[in-house]
Amino acid sequence: MKLLIVDDSLVIRNKINSGLLKRFDKVLRAKNGVEAIEVVKLVRPDVITMDLTMPEMDGVECIQEVMKVCPSTHILVISALADKATAIAALSCGANGFLCKPFTQSQLTDAIEKVLAIQLSR
């Protein structure tokens, strides 16, 4: 199992990483959408945690790209609740769930399991 963490904040990347390190064989990180797409093309992760507001390419755009490249990836949006409309757009275009920042480690692992449990037929 491979996890890709996409977030522009190092603190958040570290937090997600430490919370999920045991669950995955390999954890990769990207600090913006452009990087994320590069990684997805190379390694095809099973799960991506995706921030929505990032420089270079924002989360929604990034999800759309990921869906083109690797539609079998599970995507969990992890973002602050500033703009619900954007979050809904992200979910509409392919993300599987939403976790609100700030979150606890148990909320994170719970959300990851729920996202992984979804059967993707795409």
Binding site: L76, L81, K84, A85, A87, I88, L91, S92, G94, N96, G97, F98, L99, C100, A111, K114, V115, A117, I118, Q119, L120, S121, R122
Partner: peptide, 17 residues
């Protein structure tokens, strides 16, 4: 979103507008 199979309904309550 609730009618879409790729979504876990438990994970979207937070974005309820």
């Amino acid at each position: 979103l609730y009618f879409q199979s790729h979504i876990n309904p438990d994970l979207i309550a937070d974005v309820n507008p």
